[in-house]
């Protein structure tokens, strides 16, 4: 990851900006929404090892003086799905790629909620995104910063 950040810095113009946009290391909430009312059904059980490794990589290039962290923003992001089949396909891919434990319990809950509603509800997955703004630092700036430290 640090190598990828070095590559990004190489192709950035002087004073260029790197945007690091990714899901926050927070368990996603799954629920349904019907007639404007939301019902929470459970939280996913993701692993955050990769997220922590990414945070460390960003901290490393900032420590090296290659970038200056200018800003961090966290905001909500929703995914909506209309059917259990879509949810199951999305979740299966997620569980397989991230080698997560089975989330069949969650599929059961969603299935039940949709059944109770006659299939009119929407499935909603909510989880915040983090956006980091990192400005490329030049050699002169790095020396100056090191000298004033």
């Amino acid at each position: 990851m640090v190598h990828a950040l070095h590559e990004a810095r190489r192709v950035l113009k002087p004073g260029g900006v790197l945007i690091d946009l990714r899901p926050a290391a927070v368990h996603r909430q799954v629920g349904v929404i019907r007639a404007g009312q939301s019902q929470r059904l459970g939280a996913m059980r993701e692993k955050f090892d990769d997220d922590y490794a990414a945070n460390r990589a960003v901290a490393e290039v900032v420590r090296q003086g290659l970038f200056k962290l200018e800003r961090r923003i966290r905001f909500d992001c929703r995914r909506t799905m209309d059917s259990l089949a879509e949810f199951r396909a999305w979740l299966d891919e997620f569980v397989t790629l991230d080698k997560l434990p089975s989330h069949n319990w969650l599929i059961e809950r969603v299935s039940q909620a949709l059944h109770e509603d006659g299939g009119k509800a929407k499935i909603v997955i909510t989880g915040p995104l983090d956006l980091g703004v990192l400005k490329k630092r030049e050699l002169g700036e790095r020396k100056k910063a090191a000298g004033s430290a």
């Binding site: 990851m1 990828a4 950040l5 990004a8 190489r10 192709v11 950035l12 113009k13 002087p14 260029g16 900006v17 790197l18 945007i19 690091d20 946009l21 990714r22 899901p23 990414a54 990589a57 960003v58």
Partner: peptide, 13 residues
């Protein structure tokens, strides 16, 4: 080198 104003890591880092 130095060919972009912004680089966006899109849900990948």
């Amino acid at each position: 080198k130095e060919s972009f104003d912004l680089v966006v890591f899109s849900w990948v880092l």
